[in-house]
Design a protein around this nucleic acid. Sequence first.
DNA 1: AAGTGGTCTAGACCACCGT
DNA 2: CGGTGGTCTAGACCACTTC
Lengths: 253, 253
Amino acid sequence: MPASSPILPASLFLGIDRSGPVPLYFQVAERIEAAIDSGELPAGARLENEIALAEQLRLSRPTIRRAIQTLVDKGLLVRRRGIGTQVVHGQVRRNVELTSLFEDLQKSHRAPTTLVAGIEEQEASAVVAEQLGLPLGSKVLYVKRVRMAEGVPVAILVNYLPPAFLDFSADDFTQFGLYQLFRARGVSIQVARQRISARNASADEARLLTIPENGALLTMDRTAYDSSGKAVEFGHHCYRPDLYTIETTVVDR
Amino acid sequence: MPASSPILPASLFLGIDRSGPVPLYFQVAERIEAAIDSGELPAGARLENEIALAEQLRLSRPTIRRAIQTLVDKGLLVRRRGIGTQVVHGQVRRNVELTSLFEDLQKSHRAPTTLVAGIEEQEASAVVAEQLGLPLGSKVLYVKRVRMAEGVPVAILVNYLPPAFLDFSADDFTQFGLYQLFRARGVSIQVARQRISARNASADEARLLTIPENGALLTMDRTAYDSSGKAVEFGHHCYRPDLYTIETTVVDR
DNA sequence: AAGTGGTCTAGACCACCGT
DNA sequence: CGGTGGTCTAGACCACTTC
């Protein structure tokens, strides 16, 4: 008898709002996720089947399926045909989502601050032009920042922004994260491609990050695209590996 | 007029197989992806709307939506309500999917080979026991491998496997990748959690990877779970950063 | 045989975008 | 206003797993 009897979290029945703007599948996913976090659905627990859930929540099966799929994509649940849906073992860790480092640190209450080490208009190099999808030599905004958490330098962030953002100022970057500035302009990042690697720090980088010379750096190049598919940011970042780790969940589909 | 007229790739009409085992939405997604790869759908191109696609392909709208969603999740398309669906700018790079390094190298024809540097039964340490969800001191298989591509060492892979796999031999690991061995046992990895960072190489690691002592290493810890949600692998890996880069696409949902 | 998730359909209504 | 994607429904049939 491999599987135990299914569990129906009581919290699912509390307050599903059919008139508000929050999608029903999202509300259901939220409640299931909360039940996992709280331990009401422990690791390995079997969830009630889709049909039964749909009936008991007075929702259609596709809506329930979509809620469950959301959590499968997050790596919290696994599904097997003929078997059922179960909570993944191992405690839940939260991923680095599509936010900037600034917001990651804000969320974990690590008091981020920013030092603008350089900001100027530049002509796009071959690499920058290609990444941003601009003609060679276009005006771009170059900005180099040092990001601190609780006063300790965590990362050096070098970014190139297309001409539409030439007017961002050092002040803007001191107060806000890049993605916050984008949102204030109505620009929403929808997809980003990241290349992660490592290398030894230069003397300059070691000094800025207060690590030994030739210490290892975690590096990430990122190109981000907005909801029209155009590149809005290309950046070359390096992190103190003892203070910053990239966590990802990979799901087979 | 921001958007150009929509494009309907001719290749979509060729051979959709309604009787075979391949889902219709998958076949459609494949064809659209091929049209993007071939340039028939260039960066920025607008796709025909969902209703029209459904009619012309004689499929239902949900099926078309699912096909498109698959490609949005891959970071190839972006959608905006009231606007339409467009191809993301920037050439497409393929992600590291949920495969082992061995298969990544195989696919890119870089002739992977494996040197088994150590394999033995061990008692699970606190960390290993926790990651694998086993009692402290359980028997686990420890295996340390050096992975080469075209004869050049690329990575050092240290893995711990639960008791069910104690019988894997050095020969197995010389011939096959870990995930190939799992599949041969009917174990399919469904989700993995990865922690990526960097550090300086030890003298030993530098020697094995033929890099300067104290050179930077890209590191990844991974815990992988099978389709029943149980941990089947915990590993601690380090890569030569000049020969291996982790590429990911992050999508806002 | 019974139970599960996987796929597919045909339609409905809504929210948002541009003109 | 017309056109787009976003959500939701009610049902059908199938494939796989376990008994």
